[in-house]
């Protein structure tokens, strides 16, 4: 009979992912690549919003896009068709989020991987799991759309705590929903007093220029 041993571990489950994410961020800093992680619920308008932002920024920066989904390549094809930039589809194989290693693999498979100024990662549509895993991104952006309701920051606290800036989308339909814009902003600030908030409508283009200018400044700051 073999001896039974107890090995004391005392290690955070997310520790190894956090470490790999920090390594990736350092490498990106050296290469002067800005990685933006975009998170939201399914159907919040991520792809349309990104298309608008990319079209504002593509003349100035070299941009690559990674679309993460459980299956299909609908988003990558849409982005690529509407913007002309390189967009690849990452399949998570049933997983509800991307971690740092999966993000790294995605970057490796971009054609021109070392020569981008901005890489956008469109995370899996979900307000829970993607918030738990640091992808190695420089900034996290969250999109919350009017039909989802102004109470979402209260229900999904971690998502709004880890998001550096939040876009409130689909403002064109606000009159048809019980959505209190000020309450929503208050709820976001309650979770994260440092979050910057933008009001947009991706479909009409409202607010897209302001967000794009903000991202432009973030990119220049990161390169310093």
């Amino acid at each position: 009979m073999k001896d039974i041993r107890i090995i004391e571990v005392k290690q955070s489950v997310f520790a190894s992912n956090d470490k790999r994410a920090a390594e990736l961020r350092n490498e990106l800093k050296e290469k002067k690549i800005f990685l933006l992680n975009v998170m939201s619920s399914p159907g919040s308008g991520k792809t349309t919003t990104l298309t608008g932002i990319i079209n504002e920024l593509k003349d100035e920066f070299r941009i690559g896009v990674m679309e993460a989904d459980i299956d299909s390549d609908v988003d990558a094809r849409t982005v690529s068709k509407l913007t002309g930039v390189e967009a690849i589809q990452l399949h998570t194989g049933g997983m509800c989020h991307l971690d740092a290693d999966m993000t790294r693999q995605g970057i490796e498979s971009l054609e021109d991987k070392d020569n981008y100024d901005l890489i956008i990662l469109e995370n899996v549509g979900n307000l829970v799991c993607p918030a738990e895993f640091d992808t190695g991104a420089v900034r996290n952006m969250c999109i919350l759309s009017v039909p989802e309701g102004d109470d979402k920051p209260l229900k999904y606290p971690l998502m709004f705590e880890v998001s550096n800036f939040v876009l409130i989308n689909k403002l064109d339909v606000i009159d048809y929903f019980d959505f209190d814009l000020n309450k929503c902003k208050e709820n976001i600030k309650y979770r994260n007093p440092n979050a910057d908030i933008f009001e947009i409508c991706a479909k009409t283009g409202m607010g897209i220029k302001e967000v794009s200018d903000y991202i432009r400044n973030l990119i220049y700051d990161w390169r310093k």
């Binding site: 001896d3 039974i4 041993r5 107890i6 090995i7 571990v9 005392k10 955070s12 489950v13």
Partner: peptide, 11 residues
């Protein structure tokens, strides 16, 4: 909000 591996029993 901890999520830790405390220990493992092994042979």
């Amino acid at each position: 909000n901890e999520f830790m591996i405390k220990e493992m029993e092994v042979i």
